[in-house]
């Protein structure tokens, strides 16, 4: 479980996050939603330790990440898988080498076992036939899958996914969402997804966290989301025509 306690983050004099408190449960898909620029990516970067919070704590199974020694942080990070919005694949490495990368850096197994593991991960995300290609030679959706394969290579306890559907067509988005859901169930990971895609939220979220005006304004399940009378939340989620239809249907 990951717990965020009274987290504040400012850049210079600009406050981005104010008193955020949240718990992300094991085996669940927790989605952080909010408008562009609302601070959800900053929150994610504070949680994974790329930014140091101005105040507050991030606890991984009870241990404060930012109070750990550097070596301890690196040790913990080997248990984190992350899919970046830009995929962040190493463009000079092939698809297979990208998945092999964390294994070669940290795994204590033979080269043969590493190859088997990498092929298994690629097969898991249904992209095993593109293993010799470079990231630039495959589509955005395939790159996302490679990113997921790399993220799960080390059997992560925590999975972070930043805007998994950005730049993808609706069909591919569903495939990626399903994959995130399946992997969370399979590996029992604490999965945190940052998104503003309501289709994704309605598809796979167990717990939803709405960030607005620097604060965590609302949290709850999908059912609670549709019935919420929070004005800012409603303005955000019912901005899309599909969601307006969903509301009509349920009311």
């Amino acid at each position: 479980m990951i717990e965020v306690q009274h987290l504040y983050k400012s850049f210079g004099t600009v406050e981005v996050l104010r008193d955020i408190n949240a718990k992300f449960a094991k085996g669940k898909v927790s989605q952080i939603i909010g408008k562009s620029g609302s601070g959800k990516s900053v929150l994610a970067k504070c949680i994974i330790g790329l930014y140091k919070p101005t105040k507050g704590k991030v606890l991984y199974d009870g241990k404060s990440f930012h109070d750990m020694e550097k070596d301890e942080q690196r040790q913990l990070r080997q248990e984190i898988g992350m899919l970046f919005q830009s995929n962040a694949l190493f463009d000079s490495l092939t698809v297979l080498e990208n998945v092999l990368f964390p294994l070669r850096m940290f795994a204590t197994m033979s080269e043969k076992e590493m190859l088997e593991r990498a092929h298994f991960c690629l097969k898991r995300v249904k992209i095993e036939n593109s293993d010799k290609k470079f990231p630039a030679e495959i589509s955005g959706g395939m790159q996302k899958r490679v990113g997921i394969a790399r993220a799960i290579a080390m059997n992560p306890k925590y999975l972070f996914v930043d805007e998994p559907n950005s730049g993808l067509d609706p069909q591919t988005s569903i495939v990626i969402d399903d994959l995130i859901r399946e992997i969370t169930d399979e590996y029992n990971t604490t999965t945190v997804v940052i998104t503003h895609d309501m289709n994704s939220v309605m598809g796979i979220a167990d717990e939803i966290f709405f960030i607005n005006d620097k604060q965590l304004m609302w949290q709850g399940t999908r059912d609670q989301l549709l019935k919420s009378d929070n004005e800012a939340l409603n303005a955000f989620i019912f901005a899309g025509s599909l969601m307006r239809e969903v509301r009509k249907t349920i009311t």
């Binding site: 984190i80 919005q85 850096m105």
Partner: peptide, 12 residues
């Protein structure tokens, strides 16, 4: 391109 962030997140 966030590749350095990716290395950091992996614990490298």
């Amino acid at each position: 391109r966030e590749q350095i962030d990716a290395l950091d997140i992996m614990g490298v």
